[in-house]
Design a protein around this nucleic acid. Structure first.
Lengths: 185, 185, 185, 185
DNA sequence: ACTTCCGGGACTACCCGTTAAT
DNA sequence: ATTAACGGGTAGTCCCGGAAGT
């Protein structure tokens, strides 16, 4: 007879993940201690370690949960717009940008995390490419996503970016023919 | 009445900086201890702390030294080519990409570092924009550099990027008119 | 639902305090490392830091615990005799004298400790004065306690003091009228 | 041909001693680094170490220099008055009191310093006793000096002592017969 | 001869991720 | 499921030697 339902456990896990995400986005992985996470969730050390075997596990889980998901039936434009919008000014956009940018930074020196990010990024690129017509769809998707990564980094450091222009410009990459006119406008 | 020449001191400082850069690129800032840096340079703790007041100082100095510099008389194309080439496959390109990507990640949660990166990036963007004709030069430069940041991140995690295609594509962003034909080729 | 009783925790705390007192009395505050305290208690670093947030905290606690307490119902003479006796020759007296003398020395340059010592000393003086008749009770108490401080310092450096004579002389300060005959005896 | 005279060297030594005394009185022995002393004197590390072989030597020298000296031809009362006055309110008195109180504290745990203090104190006591008539001169001197030590400690922690009353009371200890009337006044 | 200042390296206080016992 | 305990690791300090320069 299980005392708690699986749903309850999952919710708890998600709570920890959410609290950790917030802290990580604010202070960074290294500057956030497990004690901080415990305090933020109101749980005890043991409880947290019940759901995540180690800090590394928690970091990995946060990284996985932070990755973008494309809705299956969106067009390329809509999908891209969603991705960009998630980074738009405001507390949420900033937090997300910070988290994402940190994940790239951490992945740069942690092979296991790099593998995860690599897989996710490839998957995202292909899902994206499928929505683009033309022979260079994959390359285009790759470049567009890379630009998005760079955009996130700029948002993360609160650089004075003109978001709307960026938005338009990045969108225009999708349709090469219109680039000249759009950028030049 | 200095016992050693300024050049000697500067060289020593550069040695430490270089050793630290290598270590930081390999293991990351947090995973590299000052003891590691000391061991790598062959110096004692006290010696290293004579040149950098704290680990933070060292990290900051490494970040500053890692930033790209444009040669004054390069054209936009040449300048961009240089930046891309510094990230090309091979140990050096990988190391540089890792370092740069980490810097963005760290800047995302460290306001003082963020300020430095922000300043440098703005400067780079403007220097770049000056080499581009057209009314949207600054926006173009911004997007191109963002794409470059994303490219560095891909290199850093050793994603299976087709570097030449990427190179060509990113270069073509410079000249909007030719984008369609280049990408489509 | 605490895993251990409060009494257990308090006892543990007292153990650390006692071990630290001994070490401090022997080697001094500065010459005693936290590692020494850990070794003496058999506890780990983390455990000790669970009970005392910093070395300063530990020192402060030791200082507070070392301070003399007067039994409520003692007469002035008995109370003074107790204080003196706690400094009498022997390992315990020596250790106590060393600790107390060091505390004064540390308080001389540490304002926060000075405040503690000041408060305690004033309190002790007044408690003492209440047991003495006459209009100059407070002044007398002050002088007597000062003499006691000086006596402790002599004991601490193992000066060749004639303890009994000192005892008698210091006691006689309590009753001004008999001073001449007592000292002269 | 000696470049500098012995007097010059001695003056230099005294400068260091003076600067160190000030620092020690303000921050304490342990909290004052040799670098602090160097900075305060304006000398380099090497220069300071030319005059004092080690920090311990410097501390010892400061301790010796801080000890009271009785003018040969003073009466007991005048001598005592001098000692007390050197501790009276004001920056100098406070600094002296702090230094002296610290010395006692350090001597309590440093045998070599204890030996020095012991010798000096015995000497002072005897010089003092010689000026007092009566069979209990040595004991009286001992008590009076101990009281003075305690008084210095009170001054050092800036306890709210009524200095004049203390002065009078401590002086009266010299002449047992007048104690009752003086204290009782 | 005498100072300067680089370098050494042991040491310290303290933190943090994690386990184990209740 | 709480929390005491563990213990290795970290950044940074300090005293001092000794080579290098004037």
């Amino acid at each position: 007879l299980p005392k708690v339902t699986a749903a309850y456990l999952d919710a708890r896990r998600r709570e920890i993940l959410s609290a950790a995400s917030t802290l990580f986005a604010e202070r960074g992985f290294a500057q956030t201690s497990m004690a901080d996470v415990c305090a933020a969730t109101g749980l005890s050390t043991g409880a947290v370690y019940r759901y995540f075997a180690s800090k590394n596990d928690l970091v990995l889980a946060v990284c996985k949960s932070a990755h973008a998901q494309l809705s299956e039936d969106d067009s390329a434009g809509t999908a891209l717009a969603e991705l960009i919008t998630s980074l738009f000014p405001g507390p949420d956009g900033l937090a997300h940008a910070r988290l994402v940018t940190q994940i790239w930074g951490e992945a740069a020196v942690d092979p296991s995390l790099a593998a995860v990010v690599r897989a996710r990024q490839t998957e995202l690129r292909d899902a994206f490419a499928r929505r683009i017509a033309g022979p260079a769809a994959r390359q285009t998707a790759e470049v567009v996503l890379a630009t998005l990564t760079g955009y996130a980094a700029l948002v993360a450091i609160e650089a004075p970016v003109d978001h709307d222009t960026f938005h338009r410009t990045i969108m225009s990459l999708l349709d090469p023919v219109t680039v000249s006119s759009t950028v030049g406008s």
